[in-house]
């Protein structure tokens, strides 16, 4: 691992400023993604800013009737929170579908949103990868691509975003609150937060250098049956091949967001409108621009069938 210096941040503003002034600095939260990538020298920060003592570990009601989740709230605590379980069951289910009990005790809300792809070539420093080394090429295109994205892809990258929690938050239209290096604040809807790969797959979100996530806000609860289905190669402790987070109302209307198919949680509001018409109609709009490989074509059917199972479960 590359050598680095270590500091404990004294305030959000100081952390943002320190990170903006040093392009080689990184925040560390739970460390479950960053440390892994640092061992492999895929991430090579020369300075780490530990943000764990900033006290952003609270979940509080907002004046609109929603919930503000501190950036450092651990995945375990978020999933177990009484209001989240009651009003945002989709978030609890999605979190509990991810990683393991040990990892969820460390992993944080902000870190989870910012976790990097699990593309095996991104992890293999001996192989070309545009995300890890811009301009070097994409080994997954034409390589082993069973896990890869089927929509929103580019010639440069077909990686997926691996977070389960983000899929649930996209269905619920969460908003990400940040603090920039100059102290200004902004709120970014999750729909606009993650980027598609385009020509610059190394740029994964709209965050600017040093910009700090302070909280994630869930809008007031929308009720409905909240179902998270994750299809994976083993029953637990594996990333999704395809996952769907759904909120289905009694009249059959609702929203769905899909994981494992794109560089970001995949939701098309027009497809939501088709839900009363069933899985086929909905999936055909969701994946209208699908661009598959021989190896990942099965995900198209898998999305439709998983959606069919969810609709049946919601009716049942």
């Amino acid at each position: 691992m590359r050598a680095f210096t270590y500091e404990r941040a004294s305030s959000i503003e100081a952390a943002a400023k320190a990170a903006a002034s040093n392009p080689e600095a990184k925040f560390i939260a739970g460390g479950t993604n960053l440390l892994d990538l640092m061992k492999l020298e895929i991430e090579t920060p020369t300075h780490l800013i530990d943000i764990n003592s900033l006290g952003l570990d609270k979940i509080e009601p907002t004046s609109e009737g929603g919930l503000r989740i501190g950036a450092l709230v651990r995945n375990t605590d978020l999933a177990a929170h009484e209001r989240v379980r009651r009003d945002y069951g989709l978030v609890s289910r999605a979190l509990l579908a991810g990683a393991s009990g040990q990892l969820r005790n460390k992993a944080t809300t902000a870190g989870n949103l910012l976790q990097r792809t699990r593309c095996p070539y991104f992890y293999d420093t001996n192989q070309p990868c545009n995300k890890r080394q811009p301009g070097s090429g994409c080994s997954a295109i034409g390589g082993f691509s069973r896990q890869h994205a089927i929509t929103g892809t580019s010639e440069a990258c077909i990686a997926t975003h691996a977070s389960d929690m983000a899929v649930a938050m996209r269905a619920l239209d969460a908003v990400i609150e940040t603090v920039k290096a100059d102290g200004s604040r902004r709120s970014v809807p999750i729909a606009d937060f993650h980027r598609l790969p385009g020509d610059t797959p190394e740029i994964e979100t709209v965050l600017e250098r040093g910009e700090f996530i302070s909280a994630v806000v869930l809008p007031p609860p929308i009720g409905g049956r909240q179902i998270y289905r994750k299809v994976r190669d083993r029953a637990s402790y594996a990333f999704a091949l395809v996952s769907i987070g759904a909120v289905i109302q009694l009249d059959g209307t609702g929203r769905i967001s899909v994981g494992g198919v794109a560089h970001k949680p995949w939701r098309i509001e027009q497809a939501d409108a088709e839900l009363p018409q069933g899985a086929r109609a909905t999936a055909s709009i969701l994946l209208a621009d699908a661009h598959t490989t021989e190896q990942n074509r099965f995900k198209v059917d898998l999305v439709e069938r998983t959606l069919g199972a969810i609709i049946a479960e919601a009716r049942g």
């Binding site: 270590y6 460390g31 479950t32 440390l35 892994d36 061992k39 990683a99 393991s100 040990q102 005790n105």
Partner: peptide, 27 residues
């Protein structure tokens, strides 16, 4: 595995289980 995938390194921190391989001791 040294990468969070096996649990062999599980220890308790203030009673909670974590993977010691994905933790910096200074933290």
């Amino acid at each position: 595995c040294n990468q969070g995938a096996c649990g062999a390194c599980t220890v308790l921190v203030d009673g909670e289980r974590i993977n010691a391989c994905l933790a910096f001791a200074v933290q």
